[in-house]
Amino acid sequence: MRKLLFLMVALLALWSGYWFVGSKAVRDGVNNWFADAAAQGLVAEKTAVTVAGYPNRFDLTVEGLHLADPTAGIGWTAPFVQVFAMTWKPWHIIAAFPPESQLALPDQVVTVGSEGLRASFRAKPALDLPLAAVILETNHLTASSTAGWTVGAGRSVASISADEDLPGAGDAPNTYVLSLDAAEVTPDAGFTARVNAVAIPDLPPPDLPDVVESLSGSVFLTLSAPLDRHAGEKKPYLTRLEVNRFTFAWGKLAATAKGQIEADDQGFAAGEIRFEITNWDRVPSLLVAAGLVKPEMAPTIARGMQALAGQSPDATVLPLTVKLAEGWMSFGPFPLGPAPRMVPPTG
């Protein structure tokens, strides 16, 4: 009995030592990161760093955050951020964000409000810590800008995953699945009002509701190098993109997309993505309200869309293809300009 008791006390002492050493390493790592960021000319401020959770977790809380890049004119301010990890599984961490934070951009400040905004990061238990999955989810999200706009969303989940058992991920190395599922997306009320105020001859009055019912999709991304602890040195870049699924529903307006793009011999994006837009006659009003098309050009664009839709079996469905070839891209018959470069130039 004494031996068993001694063994239990010894194990408890060892485990306690592991926790206290680990908690100090976490605290020192955070403090060093803030010091290094400040030494590089960034704004990296905090008011407190604490680690709790003994004996089974490392619960890190950083309070009074203010992070900014003065050169880029961007920054983030939050009252706190919490990061949780089990002591026996430090490669899987969960972060919880505050109900409100501020994102500073060069021309505006965006206040982000959320309910249950959290992120999960999971690496594979290997020396290189290859990415397994990052999941960002929230029960409700709003963003209000000093520029005068406000948008929101209900239950939403975004993720990037390297899990090999995901269907359709393909056999190419360094391929990741980027997914988004958002419900009850609320565009800015002023924008929706502008859309519904546009009148275009020979088209029905716009009737878009206040809420976008659904926005979801999955995209396969193939990179030049894996996302692991060496990514900062190797700087992975995108070499191939495949739209596996995309659906959008806003009242009677709906859209789907599918296709793929990859780098050509010159490093420019090449390929095509095919869209099908149901009840396309709501689109010209959207383009005018967004400032992408002048009101006087809207009837001409509407007639062009009508002619293209008339070539399909269902005149309410407009098939359009984004084509990228020889360094240029177009959307159906509309030129969009130079294609983006996917492979960085050498030399």
Results as ranks from 00 to 15, higher is better:
M1G: 13
L4A: 15
L5F: 15
L7D: 06
L7M: 15
M8Q: 11
M8P: 00
L11I: 15
Y18A: 15
K24W: 15
V30P: 09
N31V: 14
Q40V: 00
A44H: 09
E45T: 13
A48L: 12
R57Y: 12
L65H: 10
A72D: 12
P79L: 07
P79E: 11
F80H: 14
Q82V: 04
Q82H: 08
T87F: 01
W88A: 11
W88M: 13
W91H: 15
W91L: 01
F97H: 03
E100D: 08
S101L: 11
Q102Y: 00
L103I: 11
L103V: 13
L117K: 05
R122K: 12
A132Y: 07
A132W: 02
E137K: 13
S145Q: 13
T150C: 04
T150K: 15
I160P: 05
P167Y: 07
P173C: 05
Y176T: 02
L178F: 13
L178Y: 09
A183G: 12
E184W: 01
V185L: 13
A189F: 03
T192R: 13
N196P: 07
N196E: 03
A197R: 06
A199Q: 12
I200C: 02
L203G: 02
P205V: 10
P205L: 11
P209V: 04
D210N: 10
D210T: 14
V211G: 01
V211L: 02
V212Q: 02
S216H: 10
V219G: 01
R229P: 00
A231W: 01
E233M: 09
K235C: 00
R245I: 00
R245V: 02
F246V: 03
T247L: 08
A249P: 00
W250K: 05
K252N: 13
K252E: 13
A254E: 13
A254L: 01
A257P: 05
E262I: 01
A263D: 05
F268V: 01
E272F: 06
I277G: 02
W280F: 06
A289K: 05
G291W: 08
I301W: 09
P313W: 00
K323M: 06
W328E: 15
F331S: 04
F331E: 07
P333Y: 10
V343H: 04
P345C: 03
T346D: 02
T346F: 00
G347A: 11
